[in-house]
Design a protein around this nucleic acid. Structure first.
Lengths: 151, 151
DNA sequence: CTAATTGCTCAAGTTAAGTTGAGGTCAAGA
DNA sequence: TCTTGACCTCAACTTAACTTGAGCAATTAG
């Protein structure tokens, strides 16, 4: 039994539901730190379980590990989130969620305005929006549905 | 001037706002087809502009090229979407958007129920939801916030 | 003590949706 | 004809968030 409070990675994995490789990956990305025992194996603190759980929640809410890393680094002394921190940060999450919902709703409204319009041949399609598209990771096209630049 | 209705790829790129490489990529993925002239260069039909515009809109609405490919392949004779097709398909889009919005709203509600709850140490966190997470492309963790399996 | 388990590092693979570059060809206008 | 500029193919690179595998070391239960 591990009755010290230095947990090996497998234990942390079991307790958080994360995979061992994911935890190592988070350590590499500096979302968590672990010190090593004499044999060079990682030993985590109990509080790291909470920290990793926080990461999971934030991910479920759609945040990237880069963003999560920033959130965690902004905590005083880079500590693991406390209840007070959580209250504050969850409001950030809430704002972001609201924004994403609003974006989708705008998209839906534009779509509605477009369903019967035969857009596919029009120049002034309501779905022509260079801004707030899902904006994944490419450059993103600038005109849509036959809308042409200067031709 | 190109007064035939076989458009070279650069022209199609200008008219759709897509990059040349993106169009080639779509061809490779069979979202569009182009035949070749004597010199081996692609020549597109005017209707391909509409087809590519459709692809862009569907992408803005959050559909993957795989999904879009399916939609296009389901069209009779794999034709380019007409107004009638658009009306039908846009309803599919609408449904999907609605579902995504609903998912985010559920997430927001769960978050609200969790903001003041000090969850970070609880076992029955409202944010513990194995299902409808943003579900990107990994296996996805199964328990959250210190919620433990059978320990 | 020893076998089984767990852990370690490092490199490479995965998916999505393209982009970038090298090296070479084609087409169009002067 | 000659020279741009547009086009061609193919391979490799990009980001995100990990996973998988190889080859080897440490721990632990019996």
């Amino acid at each position: 039994m591990h009755r010290s409070d230095r947990l090996p990675i497998g234990e942390v994995a079991r307790r958080t539901g994360l995979s061992v490789s994911a935890i190592r990956f988070y350590e590499e990305r500096e979302l968590v730190t672990a010190d090593r025992n004499s044999g060079g194996q990682r030993r985590f603190l109990r509080s790291d379980i909470r920290r990793l759980s926080f990461i999971q929640i934030a991910q479920q809410l759609g945040f990237s590990i880069t963003q999560i890393g920033s959130l965690l680094k902004d905590l005083p002394e880079n500590r693991t989130p406390t209840k007070r921190d959580w209250t504050r940060i969850s409001k950030v999450f809430r704002k972001d969620l609201d924004a994403r919902i609003a974006t989708l709703e705008r998209l839906r409204d534009r779509l509605d305005g477009c369903i019967g319009c035969g857009c596919l041949s029009l120049n002034n399609c309501a779905l022509y929006n260079p801004d707030d598209s899902a904006s994944r990771h490419g450059a993103g096209a600038r005109f849509v549905l036959g809308d042409q630049p200067d031709v």
